[in-house]
Amino acid sequence: MERLSFRLFTIFIALLFALFLFAAITTLFLIPKPNEIIESIKSEEMAYSLKLSLVTASISTLLVMLFGIPIGYALSRFDFYGKSAVKSILDLPMAFPELVLGLALLLLFGRTTFGGALNSLGINVVFTKLGIIVAQFFTALPYTARVIYTAFESISKRYELVARSLGYGEFETFRKVTLPMARSGLFASTIIAFARSVGTFGSVLILAGGSYMNTEILPVTLYLNISYGNIGMAITSGIMLIIVSFTAILIFERLEGSKNVSVRG
């Protein structure tokens, strides 16, 4: 009897939460008037913000994957000096708020000799579009590297040993065996990297500054327009964010699905 009611209790909580979340998301689409949304979409600001979001998030995703794959692989396959330190440092950004990460990056690039050196090379990160990418990169990489690590962990090392014994070097083995076997995990990581990058707000705001039509990405548009009391624009950018993320997921799934089919055939 007790077990049954506990079971009902957990199911009830699960349903209740899902319902609330669903209601909240639906409200986003129901509250604004259609013409308000269309006006907002047509606005120059929205077009700018959407485009900048797509461009920066795509570049960040690419960079995150380029860094995440070696990091995930090294953590999963090799024992090296400082490995546990790398693991803990990668865990840090998940524990502390994005805003603080942004602040830390701002100080690193703005107030240190390292930042100064970059500056003198003509690389300006603070309050620039490059800053958006840097902020997105640092926010998304830890999450992504972790997912990639799990993907590699799930592949037995012995597949690689077999390939090595058949004459393949370390890198060839990685390319011909590990990478193809990790494919679905890497697709999932790419989606996560992209979704995290598009949605990054706090660290972008601090490092790149949320300046109108300059470093304005969708989350910044939402924030700026809320503060001006411009609800229509705010909601529209929210909807845009959701659409972008879902489209990304759909595209990636389609890509992966079609590859699967061709491999099977």
Binding site: L161, R164, S165, E170
Partner: peptide
């Protein structure tokens, strides 16, 4: 390294 040993497993 294993790839140069000519043994398979």
């Amino acid at each position: 390294p294993p790839e140069n040993r000519g043994m398979s497993i």
